[in-house]
Structure formats: structure tokens, C-alpha cells
Deep mutational scan, measured.
Amino acid sequence: MAAAAAAGAGPEMVRGQVFDVGPRYTNLSYIGEGAYGMVCSAYDNVNKVRVAIKKISPFEHQTYCQRTLREIKILLRFRHENIIGINDIIRAPTIEQMKDVYIVQDLMETDLYKLLKTQHLSNDHICYFLYQILRGLKYIHSANVLHRDLKPSNLLLNTTCDLKICDFGLARVADPDHDHTGFLTEYVATRWYRAPEIMLNSKGYTKSIDIWSVGCILAEMLSNRPIFPGKHYLDQLNHILGILGSPSQEDLNCIINLKARNYLLSLPHKNKVPWNRLFPNADSKALDLLDKMLTFNPHKRIEVEQALAHPYLEQYYDPSDEPIAEAPFKFDMELDDLPKEKLKELIFEETARFQPGYRS
């Protein structure tokens, strides 16, 4: 834990890192770190609560700039109880001085990944967590956004079992017609939660990839272990087919990539493993919904509104309290091709509203 900075004593240090967030945020305490930044909790002297502050230093890398800009653009436009918001952003007053960006968010005690390492969940908890994931996802999908990296560590939890989806750095506007060349190379989302079509096709992607990830998360809540822990690309596919069985001819016809289709045709026939054999203690309604989410063919996979209306979630289902976005989200430009200098300018502009004396 960093010592509390005395008023006016300059930035606090946390594990050798400068955290320049005073005077409003003090009493910093280390939480963890990701690929390009550290997260601390801090005391907000204005709202009198502890908050989470993520320090991001992305400006050396085009990919990190892209992810940072995506996350900020999306989260500043989203407003939903099951999606983490941005409360404040701290950065230098000029673009030349801006080396880091500090993002202030609600402090959540833990995440689903940490929880599943230590606790076996009751059916009631599984049901409530799944409902909140789908409630947040309904809003995301209504904005025409794909999260693309749903996994237990991106689901934040607090002691009252509130759940918030975080990390929109890989999110995209849904565009089933656009052929994202190089899709697989830039697709760094965790393999275990990846839909089979991501490994088999490169053309376009749809909201059904997020539903697949939610199915993987439900299976993990039922058993405290990942359902498809593939060691590499082909191993991942083999794990999936080992449980779902061989795809039907109709399902194979959806695979545009001939090499991928021929690979699947070359494999020995596998039978589907019954879900109640894998999860003998699970609620039968939970397994019915799991089956509809972990469907090989993305066109037959359940959609988020149908999933919310499934009998497993009937005690929570309330369409009048499951809000959607006001308007579909649009990125003005494809960020993939922009140089990091341009992305830095866009991050600077996007964060201006939090600067003292800002006038829109």
C-alpha cells in the first residue's frame, strides 16, 4: 500500500510507478496490472468513496492506442447498470505532455475469474450472474457493438453480487458484411471463450460470437473449470467437437473457408456428449439454455433477447427493466489503419471533457 500523499506533496508512487492523480484522489492501494497499465484503488475526496484507477501508458504502440481509444469512446457513450462506466479521466493539459491516461471507475471487490478459483456457486448465484451478463449484453448488442472478449476476468463483482462487464478494448461495431482481413492475426481474445466460426472463417462476425462466450462462462460457473481449455488453435476446435459432436452437413455448409471445411470433413465422426453427463448436478433449465448458447452453427445460436426470456431466468426476466441503447454506435473511421500519432490526438480530444474549465 502506498503511503497517503500529504496535501501538495506531488504524485504518489505505487510499486515504483508514478500515479499522478492528486489532489482529488489519494490513499492509493495496488490492485493489479494488465498488459499496459496498473490498477489501484484510491480515495475520492470529492465523492467520499474509494474508486478504481487504471493507469494506461499506450502511446508507444499502435495496438494499445487503438484499444484505449475504443474503450474510452464506447464506455463514455454507454450507460447501463451492468456495464462499468467511466467516472473521470485524468491526463496532462497538453498533448505533448500526455504520456499516461488515468481512467477512474467504480471500485468492484472482485471478478468472476477470482471468485470461481475459490468458491463453488449455488444455482441461485449462477442464475443471477447469468441474468446480469445477458442484461448488459442486450444493451451492448442493441448499440450494434460486439464485445468480443467476454470471459470471467472481464466480469466485475461486488459483495452485493452486482455484476458489471468491463474491458471493451477489443470491441467492434457489428459488421457481418465487412471482410476484416487479418482478423485472426489481430484477434487476441482469450482462445477458450472463442466461437468456432472465428477459427473457421475470417469473413465478418456477428453478435452470436458473444453468446458463445457467455455459454462458455455459464459452463464454467457450473463446474469451476473452463469447458474448452484448448492449448492452441486446432486443439481448441477438437475440444469443442469432442463435446458438441461432429457438425451436420448443414452446419458445414455455413463454413465459407474450404480449407477449414475440408479439415472438419477429414475428422472421424464424434457423438455429442449429453450435458447432464458433463454437469450431473446442474439445473435442467440451465443445461437447456447452455445447449442453445453453445450451438456450433452461429445462425442457430440463441440471441440475447431470447436467452433473457428463457425459463431458467424467469424469476428475473423483465423486458421493461432491460434497457437498450438510445442509438446504434458508430465509429467515424476504422481505427485499425491509423498511425499511433493520430490515435493519440483522438484520445486527447475524447478525454477533453474531463479537463478543468472544459467548454463543449
Rank of each mutant, 00 (worst) to 15 (best):
residue 31 I to E: 01
residue 213 S to Q: 06
residue 352 A to Q: 13
residue 297 N to M: 09
residue 294 L to G: 05
residue 134 L to Y: 06
residue 197 E to T: 05
residue 359 R to W: 15
residue 275 W to P: 11
residue 324 I to R: 09
residue 20 D to T: 11
residue 188 V to D: 14
residue 301 R to Q: 06
residue 57 S to F: 11
residue 226 P to K: 00
residue 245 G to T: 00
residue 19 F to W: 10
residue 168 F to Q: 07
residue 72 I to F: 11
residue 144 N to S: 10
residue 100 D to Q: 03
residue 162 D to K: 01
residue 325 A to K: 02
residue 90 I to S: 01
residue 193 Y to I: 09
residue 99 K to S: 05
residue 72 I to Q: 10
residue 3 A to F: 04
residue 143 A to K: 09
residue 322 E to C: 06
residue 349 E to S: 02
residue 156 L to F: 06
residue 281 N to W: 07
residue 199 M to W: 02
residue 270 K to D: 06
residue 129 F to Y: 14
residue 148 R to N: 08
residue 46 V to Q: 05
residue 357 G to T: 00
residue 75 L to F: 02
residue 30 Y to C: 10
residue 101 V to Y: 10
residue 308 L to W: 07
residue 261 R to M: 09
residue 82 N to A: 10
residue 267 L to A: 04
residue 220 E to L: 08
residue 264 L to S: 04
residue 263 Y to W: 05
residue 186 E to K: 14
residue 195 A to R: 08
residue 93 P to F: 01
residue 112 L to V: 04
residue 198 I to G: 02
residue 196 P to I: 06
residue 70 R to H: 09
residue 204 G to R: 14
residue 220 E to W: 06
residue 62 Q to P: 12
residue 162 D to E: 15
residue 128 Y to W: 06
residue 82 N to S: 09
residue 191 R to H: 07
residue 38 M to G: 09
residue 19 F to A: 12
residue 279 F to T: 00
residue 297 N to C: 11
residue 7 A to N: 02
residue 334 E to Q: 06
residue 205 Y to D: 12
residue 145 V to A: 03
residue 355 Q to V: 06
residue 216 C to S: 15
residue 220 E to A: 12
residue 77 R to F: 01
residue 168 F to E: 06
residue 7 A to R: 13
residue 304 V to M: 12
residue 285 K to W: 07
residue 153 S to M: 09
residue 334 E to A: 00
residue 180 H to V: 13
residue 55 K to E: 12
residue 170 L to R: 02
residue 154 N to H: 10
residue 145 V to I: 02
residue 204 G to N: 07
residue 154 N to V: 11
residue 245 G to N: 02
residue 217 I to H: 12
residue 252 L to P: 13
residue 183 F to C: 10
residue 26 T to R: 11
residue 168 F to L: 15
residue 88 D to C: 02
residue 302 I to D: 08
residue 149 D to M: 07
residue 5 A to K: 10
residue 223 S to W: 13
residue 212 W to Q: 11
residue 318 D to G: 03
residue 5 A to E: 10
residue 98 M to N: 05
residue 99 K to I: 01
residue 259 K to C: 05
residue 133 I to S: 04
residue 342 K to C: 03
residue 136 G to E: 12
residue 268 P to H: 14
residue 64 Y to A: 12
residue 117 K to S: 04
residue 25 Y to Q: 10
residue 301 R to A: 08
residue 31 I to Q: 02
residue 133 I to N: 15
residue 61 H to D: 02
residue 338 L to H: 03
residue 284 S to Y: 03
residue 85 G to L: 04
residue 269 H to E: 13
residue 10 G to E: 10
residue 246 S to M: 01
residue 247 P to R: 07
residue 142 S to V: 05
residue 311 P to T: 14
residue 85 G to E: 04
residue 21 V to K: 05
residue 268 P to A: 02
residue 204 G to F: 08
residue 296 F to D: 04
residue 31 I to W: 06
residue 271 N to W: 07
residue 348 F to M: 13
residue 304 V to Y: 02
residue 287 L to M: 15
residue 269 H to W: 11
residue 61 H to Q: 13
residue 266 S to Y: 03
residue 32 G to Q: 03
residue 68 T to K: 04
residue 339 P to C: 09
residue 280 P to G: 11
residue 231 K to F: 06
residue 112 L to K: 04
residue 108 M to K: 15
residue 62 Q to R: 05
residue 110 T to P: 14
residue 341 E to C: 03
residue 109 E to K: 14
residue 26 T to C: 13
residue 183 F to S: 13
residue 185 T to P: 15
residue 12 E to F: 00
residue 300 K to H: 10
residue 3 A to L: 10
residue 244 L to V: 00
residue 42 A to V: 04
residue 157 L to D: 12
residue 40 C to Y: 06
residue 202 S to I: 13
residue 123 N to D: 11
residue 82 N to E: 12
residue 40 C to H: 00
residue 233 Y to W: 01
residue 128 Y to S: 07
residue 49 V to Q: 10
residue 76 L to R: 01
residue 79 R to A: 07
residue 286 A to E: 02
residue 38 M to P: 12
residue 219 A to M: 13
residue 242 G to A: 09
residue 190 T to K: 08
residue 6 A to D: 11
residue 151 K to I: 02
residue 318 D to S: 03
residue 293 M to P: 03
residue 258 L to R: 04
residue 168 F to R: 05
residue 341 E to D: 15
residue 67 R to A: 03
residue 20 D to K: 05
residue 97 Q to P: 11
residue 328 P to I: 04
residue 143 A to G: 07
residue 247 P to C: 01
residue 194 R to C: 12
residue 132 Q to E: 10
residue 80 H to I: 04
residue 94 T to W: 07
residue 129 F to C: 05
residue 356 P to L: 06
residue 189 A to E: 13
residue 266 S to A: 03
residue 210 D to E: 13
residue 217 I to R: 07
residue 248 S to D: 05
residue 299 H to Y: 15
residue 35 A to R: 05
residue 235 D to E: 15
residue 83 I to Q: 02
residue 253 N to T: 07
residue 234 L to W: 09
residue 83 I to Y: 00
residue 322 E to D: 10
residue 329 F to D: 04
residue 51 V to E: 06
residue 82 N to D: 10
residue 279 F to G: 01
residue 261 R to C: 08
residue 34 G to M: 02
residue 208 S to F: 07
residue 335 L to G: 13
residue 6 A to V: 11
residue 128 Y to H: 01
residue 202 S to T: 13
residue 125 H to I: 10
residue 272 K to Y: 05
residue 91 R to L: 14
residue 64 Y to H: 10
residue 19 F to Y: 15
residue 74 I to W: 07
residue 296 F to N: 06
residue 357 G to V: 15
residue 289 L to K: 05
residue 264 L to A: 03
residue 192 W to M: 12
residue 70 R to T: 01
residue 3 A to Y: 10
residue 233 Y to E: 07
residue 354 F to G: 12
residue 104 V to L: 10
residue 54 K to E: 07
residue 260 A to T: 12
residue 147 H to C: 04
residue 117 K to L: 09
residue 278 L to C: 03
residue 166 C to M: 01
residue 209 I to L: 13
residue 70 R to D: 03
residue 156 L to H: 04
residue 323 P to N: 02
residue 3 A to C: 12
residue 50 R to C: 06
residue 309 A to N: 01
residue 337 D to E: 15
residue 157 L to C: 12
residue 358 Y to H: 12
residue 178 H to T: 10
residue 34 G to R: 14
residue 67 R to Q: 06
residue 359 R to S: 15
residue 262 N to Q: 09
residue 167 D to P: 02
residue 40 C to R: 01
residue 170 L to P: 06
residue 39 V to P: 06
residue 153 S to T: 01
residue 244 L to Q: 13
residue 7 A to S: 13
residue 60 E to R: 11
residue 308 L to P: 04
residue 114 K to M: 13
residue 297 N to H: 12
residue 243 I to H: 05
residue 159 T to I: 12
residue 152 P to V: 03
residue 284 S to M: 11
residue 136 G to K: 04
residue 256 I to A: 09
residue 190 T to E: 12
residue 225 R to P: 02
residue 19 F to P: 13
residue 272 K to A: 05
residue 331 F to K: 01
residue 183 F to P: 08
residue 267 L to D: 00
residue 58 P to T: 15
residue 316 Y to C: 11
residue 208 S to G: 02
residue 176 P to V: 08
residue 209 I to K: 10
residue 208 S to N: 05
residue 124 D to M: 08
residue 265 L to R: 03
residue 232 H to G: 00
residue 129 F to E: 09
residue 126 I to G: 08
residue 171 A to G: 06
residue 73 K to D: 12
residue 38 M to E: 12
residue 280 P to E: 12
residue 101 V to I: 11
residue 211 I to T: 13
residue 99 K to W: 00
residue 31 I to M: 06
residue 291 D to T: 02
residue 173 V to N: 07
residue 81 E to R: 10
residue 110 T to R: 07
residue 212 W to I: 13
residue 227 I to D: 01
residue 332 D to G: 10
residue 314 E to S: 02
residue 3 A to K: 08
residue 201 N to S: 12
residue 219 A to L: 13
residue 181 T to H: 08
residue 116 L to V: 02
residue 232 H to V: 02
residue 88 D to K: 04
residue 245 G to P: 08
residue 85 G to K: 08
residue 35 A to N: 11
residue 192 W to T: 13
residue 78 F to P: 06
residue 114 K to W: 13
residue 311 P to M: 03
residue 111 D to H: 01
residue 243 I to E: 02
residue 337 D to I: 06
residue 338 L to W: 00
residue 298 P to N: 02
residue 204 G to K: 11
residue 4 A to Q: 13
residue 351 T to I: 06
residue 150 L to A: 04
residue 118 T to N: 01
residue 157 L to N: 13
residue 203 K to N: 14
residue 24 R to S: 14
residue 328 P to Q: 05
residue 308 L to E: 02
residue 312 Y to N: 15
residue 252 L to D: 05
residue 96 E to M: 00
residue 164 K to E: 10
residue 112 L to D: 05
residue 184 L to D: 14
residue 99 K to N: 15
residue 243 I to V: 06
residue 18 V to H: 05
residue 12 E to T: 02
residue 150 L to Y: 05
residue 167 D to C: 01
residue 192 W to I: 13
residue 142 S to K: 04
residue 41 S to Q: 07
residue 357 G to W: 01
residue 331 F to H: 07
residue 173 V to G: 09
residue 171 A to Q: 08
residue 339 P to V: 10
residue 251 D to R: 07
residue 7 A to I: 06
residue 190 T to P: 11
residue 295 T to L: 06
residue 192 W to D: 10
